[in-house]
Design a binder for these strands. Structure first.
Length: 241
DNA sequence: AAAGACTCCAACCGCCCTGGC
DNA sequence: CGCCAGGGCGGTTGGAGTCTT
């Protein structure tokens, strides 16, 4: 792996550097991070530039204290996804993965503080048993290929996020085209949906949520626990409304 | 007032995955 | 198929700010 090279600036960013990076992104757009330091005239490595933009400079980033509903969502999503900070942050508008991670590590993970503020969540401060389905093969010509395209084209990241919800062992597609066709099958069983497979695995591995969470969030975790695919999809699709 | 302890978060590090060749 | 570079992620750290004694 490549780390930031020797001779490049490290540490806190100055306001001048921020301005340079901002102007560069506005002019050339996001992406091509390897070119950004050169184009922006920054003596920083590409990763440093990317991180600074994504975690701090990007418009619409929300700063300050997490609201109660945001914290609640973090707790619930962390139960479902484990330490998949980028996925969790994806469902919390304006918050970055780093924000969520920092929040978790500094506040939520500290049992005493957590107990003080969320006494009803006491069971959640143990090691999370995230959903970890086995690797699945994908193929393109299944019946779902025709169902997602318009969504995928307009909400690429959302769709990716949805597919990622099955945790890190799934072979996730990276292009819009393949995302449209990303219902995994390994034999000739197109009738078995991706979600049915995932939920079956959840059942098999007894990856369950606390009863209290099930009972007070029927639209979300109970949908997963109850193996109600429609409810899960409904939850996952609410970004598109 | 000062020093040590603690908190918080921006930034870095190292790894994984993917696509191009 | 293997290698390499780029993008992205989660884990960890460093240091500035705040609190406590």
């Amino acid at each position: 792996m490549e780390s930031c090279l020797v001779g490049l600036r490290k540490g806190a960013w100055t306001s001048e550097e921020d301005d340079l990076l901002r102007k560069c992104i506005h002019k050339y757009g996001e992406g091509k991070w390897h070119q950004v330091p050169l184009k922006a005239g920054l003596n920083r490595c590409r990763k440093s530039c990317r991180l600074r933009w994504l975690n701090y400079l990007k418009p619409n980033i929300k700063r300050g204290e997490f609201a109660e509903d945001e914290v609640d969502l973090i707790l619930r999503l962390h139960k479902l996804l484990g330490n998949r900070w980028s996925l969790i942050a994806g469902r919390i508008p304006g918050r970055t993965a780093n924000d969520v991670k920092n929040y978790w590590n500094t506040r939520v993970r500290k049992t005493n503080h957590h107990l003080r503020n969320y006494p009803h969540e006491t069971k959640s401060i143990h090691k999370v048993k995230a959903i970890k389905p086995q690797p699945q093969a994908f193929k393109n010509n299944n019946k779902y290929s025709q169902e997602i395209p318009t969504i995928a084209k307009t909400q690429e990241n959302v769709v990716e996020k949805r597919l990622c919800i099955g945790e890190n062992h799934l072979k996730l597609p990276t292009t819009t085209t393949t995302m449209m066709c990303s219902i995994p099958t390994d034999d000739n069983d197109d009738d078995i949906t991706w979600w049915q497979r995932l939920l079956a695995e959840i059942e098999t591995e007894e990856v369950l949520f606390d009863k209290e969470i099930q009972s007070d969030d029927a639209g979300f975790s109970s949908g997963v626990l109850g193996h109600d695919v429609d409810q899960v999809w409904s939850f996952l699709n609410d970004d598109l409304d």
